[in-house]
Design a protein around this nucleic acid. Sequence first.
DNA 1: ATCATTACATACTAAGCGGTATGAAGAGGC
DNA 2: GCCTCTTCATACCGCTTAGTATGTAATGAT
Lengths: 210, 210
Amino acid sequence: MKRRKRDPKATKRALLEAAFEEMHKHGFQGTSISQILARTGMTKGALFHHYPSKLALAYAVLDEIVEPMIVDIWLVPLDSRDDPLVALQAMLRSSVKRMTDQLGRNALLLGCPLNHFAEEMSPLDEGIRNRCNRIFSRWQSGITGVLVDGIGQGVVRSDVDAENTAMFIIASIEGAISMGKQTQSLARCLEMLQGCGEHLSLYLESLRKN
Amino acid sequence: MKRRKRDPKATKRALLEAAFEEMHKHGFQGTSISQILARTGMTKGALFHHYPSKLALAYAVLDEIVEPMIVDIWLVPLDSRDDPLVALQAMLRSSVKRMTDQLGRNALLLGCPLNHFAEEMSPLDEGIRNRCNRIFSRWQSGITGVLVDGIGQGVVRSDVDAENTAMFIIASIEGAISMGKQTQSLARCLEMLQGCGEHLSLYLESLRKN
DNA sequence: ATCATTACATACTAAGCGGTATGAAGAGGC
DNA sequence: GCCTCTTCATACCGCTTAGTATGTAATGAT
């Protein structure tokens, strides 16, 4: 009955962000359309006008929110003119700040949305799996590139398998975030992230050519 | 109508194992009672006779299946008389075999059930969170103990933070399993687990006192 | 053999789910 | 102003969900 001013782009975006937040907390299957609507004050008519299905909404969340977020947190800080190994170590140190900037401090307790989607849905839906796969690949490529640069510059030992190492770094980060989330304690969450960063930094140092 | 011989313990166990398999694949929220019943051929009467609710069933799955499984895969192999660092490295090498022995080869694609429960339910249910927490703590304690032994024996550098390192090892393992699952390819799953094991072995070697 | 108890099977319920059908109000072109 | 398309709001639908109520067959104690 109430008719406010129309702003379809803002409406669509609000639905998308509400869907992201709900799915980040409850997972895809645990999120109901009505929860998303309650969060936005919209109705089903609006949602199904902009998105044909819940699954399509999840795809949009991955494409338009999760992927840019991963890029901003984990790839953008790699664009530096530093020594590649130092750049990676700086990325690890700044990661907590980047995450809280993007997600808000309390959302750290909800873990990595990419990992959440992947863990829940990889065996269940090809569309979600392919999207997660693409994002992870992009992330891995970014780190691989830095390591390859390092090898080219003679900073990193030439026997280092860059792709494999990049995978290991991402796996450790995601694992640490998961274990932090699992405690549901902000302090221990930060402790685990920081600890992981320090261990990885040490490991990266061991890859240095000297 | 069909009445077979009764075996309540076997019935309860069958329901428990079916619940584990369903929840391992679909998650807690994504699992429906009827799917569990279809898998066992039982009916609701049987299930709700043995377990008062779906949540109670999940608790039993964690207590009676997931925890022993984690212990068997990751803690039992640490009981060796070897050099502590060698024991950890051997554990990493044998992990794939232990996992496939416990879960079956194709279930590798479903990832670590502990991590799945934790990732999905940690922010949503205290009972599940506490159980996951206990299992992770037990795992971490086991590795910490080995590292502390190593320090005591003069094999591991005394400046190593055993608890923190144990956390890092577990995080890396869980992360690698997650990334493997995400590919839904057995080959890449094995590749990631193996790669992670090699990197961790190298890192462990860097902790050696010499 | 009897009888209470256990171990189920069957039928049912209220609530919530994703999705659709319909209609009306806002917005832009002429 | 008028007409059309877009953008929603509302009402509804069939289905599934976790859980309950009830009844009955199997089991074990006496």
